[in-house]
Simulated assay, not measured.
Amino acid sequence: MTGRALSSDWLKIRGKGIWFLVFLAPIGLTAMQALNFGLRLDYLKQQYGDNLWGGLLNNVVVFVPLALMLGATILSSMIANVEHEQGSWKQLLALPIPRTAVYLAKFMLACILLIVSSLLLTVGVVGLGLVLGFDASEIPWTDTIRLGLLPLAGALPVLSLELWLTMVTKNQALPVTLGIILAVMGMFSLSISPYFPLAWAQMAWNGPHSWMYAGMGIGMGLLIMLLGMIHFSRKDVA
């Protein structure tokens, strides 16, 4: 059932600008660092010495949690709006597909789109490093793949919360505003505590136990997703 709902959602997002957003974030972050390194290449080469790839990754990852949380907010709203704008919730939920399958399919769609965006960021960063003349034999493949995926795991609670709110609320102003606030708060969350959930996207990359924070993000994200699924399955959606 979930597979059928997911296949239907893939068709629905065509021509909705969602794929543009998926490509926009990694291209934007890569372009930002292309400008940064292009203007200060000699200085940055001296600063990072023999670890040019590490320096590039550290410059990129500063903006990744913010981009992920904003992306999760906007993607959730756009996915939910496919049904809200067409007024098709009643028709969709009248089909012989459980509400839980409908909700899970949209959650999986959002996760897949963010994973694709994260992997595109990996490709963009590697390509930028090669263009800048970094040694191809020294590409830290593990770290470049971790660059987007571990912060995404840490940011999963925000995605789950935003999808929940956008799915059950026709007016998207409140959930989108909340998502922007959470994304901005996430930039300063380490000053509160590394165990504060909004800090997990950062700690999943540079924390002393990065996999632990990624796991905490996945665990809380799935818990919020389950709560949202239960609420959605019992709520009348217009």
Results as ranks from 00 to 15, higher is better:
residue 109 L to F: 03
residue 124 G to D: 04
residue 121 L to K: 03
residue 104 L to H: 05
residue 107 F to I: 15
residue 132 L to H: 02
residue 109 L to N: 01
residue 131 V to C: 03
residue 107 F to D: 04
residue 125 V to Q: 00
residue 117 S to Y: 03
residue 115 I to L: 13
residue 119 L to T: 11
residue 128 L to P: 03
residue 127 G to F: 09
residue 127 G to N: 10
residue 107 F to V: 13
residue 105 A to C: 09
residue 109 L to S: 02
residue 122 T to V: 04
residue 133 G to L: 12
residue 125 V to K: 00
residue 129 G to H: 02
residue 108 M to C: 08
residue 113 L to I: 10
residue 126 V to A: 14
residue 109 L to A: 06
residue 114 L to P: 01
residue 108 M to K: 06
residue 127 G to H: 08
residue 98 P to I: 07
residue 126 V to W: 02
residue 103 Y to G: 05
residue 128 L to H: 07
residue 128 L to A: 09
residue 107 F to R: 08
residue 98 P to W: 06
residue 126 V to H: 03
residue 134 F to Y: 14
residue 116 V to R: 03
residue 133 G to C: 10
residue 100 T to L: 04
residue 126 V to R: 01
residue 97 I to C: 10
residue 123 V to A: 14
residue 108 M to R: 10
residue 96 P to F: 12
residue 111 C to A: 15
residue 108 M to F: 06
residue 101 A to P: 05
residue 102 V to H: 08
residue 97 I to H: 10
residue 107 F to P: 01
residue 119 L to D: 09
residue 103 Y to P: 04
residue 119 L to W: 09
residue 116 V to I: 15
residue 128 L to N: 06
residue 118 S to D: 05
residue 125 V to G: 04
residue 117 S to N: 09
residue 121 L to V: 11
residue 121 L to Q: 05
residue 104 L to P: 00
residue 110 A to L: 13
residue 120 L to H: 05
residue 112 I to M: 14
residue 106 K to R: 15
residue 105 A to T: 07
residue 124 G to I: 01
residue 126 V to K: 02
residue 126 V to D: 02
residue 117 S to H: 00
residue 128 L to M: 11
residue 124 G to Q: 06
residue 127 G to E: 12
residue 111 C to R: 08
residue 125 V to S: 02
residue 120 L to A: 14
residue 106 K to P: 06
residue 125 V to C: 06
residue 131 V to A: 14
residue 126 V to P: 01
residue 103 Y to T: 09
residue 103 Y to S: 04
residue 96 P to D: 13
residue 97 I to V: 15
residue 133 G to W: 13
residue 131 V to L: 15
residue 115 I to S: 07
residue 116 V to N: 02
residue 116 V to H: 02
residue 115 I to T: 15
residue 131 V to E: 12
residue 132 L to W: 03
residue 107 F to Q: 12
residue 106 K to L: 12
residue 96 P to Q: 13
residue 101 A to W: 08
residue 133 G to I: 14
residue 123 V to R: 05
residue 101 A to E: 14
residue 132 L to S: 05
residue 107 F to C: 12
residue 117 S to D: 04
residue 112 I to L: 15
residue 121 L to F: 07
residue 128 L to D: 08
residue 113 L to A: 05
residue 117 S to A: 14
residue 108 M to E: 08
residue 120 L to P: 01
residue 99 R to I: 11
residue 117 S to F: 00
residue 132 L to V: 12
residue 104 L to E: 11
residue 110 A to Q: 01
residue 105 A to H: 05
residue 116 V to Q: 04
residue 117 S to V: 03
residue 126 V to Y: 02
residue 117 S to G: 11
residue 116 V to E: 04
residue 125 V to R: 01
residue 102 V to Y: 03
residue 101 A to D: 15
residue 113 L to Q: 01
residue 97 I to P: 04
residue 119 L to Q: 09
residue 123 V to P: 03
residue 110 A to T: 14
residue 120 L to I: 15
residue 117 S to P: 07
residue 100 T to E: 14
residue 117 S to C: 10
residue 120 L to E: 08
residue 125 V to Y: 01
residue 96 P to I: 15
residue 99 R to W: 09
residue 131 V to R: 10
residue 111 C to Y: 08
residue 112 I to G: 06
residue 114 L to H: 00
